[in-house]
Nucleic acid binder design. Structure first.
Lengths: 132, 132
DNA sequence: TCGCTTAATGCAATTGAGTTGCAAAAATAA
DNA sequence: TTATTTTTGCAACTCAATTGCATTAAGCGA
């Protein structure tokens, strides 16, 4: 009997999980829940999509971005596997509303006194190359 | 008759607007809609608070921060008046959930090629001095 | 100071994202 | 194949935010 160590719950590979993960893997952009639902032609229940996204977040396969307009987007982080590391900048286009990971740009900041920094959320806002 | 120039809509000073603005002015922290409602002892209708916040945002007297947990907060930007400029870092404490403007810390970044950057949203996540 | 115009307010109803409970279906290990 | 447990789909629910509309009140001009 194990009292102090809780086994991580086993997760299963299901068509929904595979399809959603592959969709995010192949997408250049971060996708919202609604966009994922559309691209799957509404073959998955909306609740299932939320739960699959939670599992993928939990396992570190994807990351979550809360855009400045409040829209939540999900993306596979290509450059930082296998250990997840979201220390990169996102770009949010105010015209097409698309959110992209700028993997090549690293954020620089001075750590303020007495604050303990564990993570960074850095989004540049403006107009993307396609919309200029 | 003016065809091409639309007069900006006149706004009025009301007790609600004054109270909400003074509340944000005197607060060290960014406040959410719910927090504002509480601190006004529920004397204002929640819809009125939303509409006053919209007007204050419109006039540039306050700015809006969408926290990583999705909670929207509002703050007066003390250092950048009269011209509003939100080019500063926010700190979001994962324990007490408070969001602070770190006016003294300026974000540094390389502008990515072909992107037009008009604004910056930079939040450091972690533990604030009070919670360490 | 008084009226008039129009912005602001309060209330009710609505929208939309996200969550929860539960029974049925399906993935995996034995 | 069977048994176990996760995952799914559906319905119902929560909560933040928005909209419509009638009423109230700010503030300008007379």
């Amino acid at each position: 009997m194990q009292y102090f160590f809780k086994m991580p719950k086993a997760t299963r590979n299901t068509p929904a999980k595979t399809k959603i993960y592959e969709l995010l893997l192949s997408s250049e952009l971060a996708l919202s829940h609604a966009e994922i639902q559309q691209r799957l032609d509404f073959t998955c229940d909306r609740v299932t999509i939320y739960r699959v996204l939670d599992r993928l977040l939990e396992s570190g396969q994807i990351h979550k971005i809360v855009n400045v307009d409040g829209v939540v987007k999900y993306a596979c982080c290509k450059t930082c596997s296998p250990v997840h590391q979201h220390n990169h900048i996102h770009f949010s286009c105010e015209r097409c509303k698309e959110v992209t990971c700028l993997n090549e740009v690293e954020p620089v900041y001075q750590i303020p006194k007495n604050y303990l920094v564990t993570d960074v959320s850095f989004t540049l806002l403006g107009v993307c190359p396609q919309c200029r």
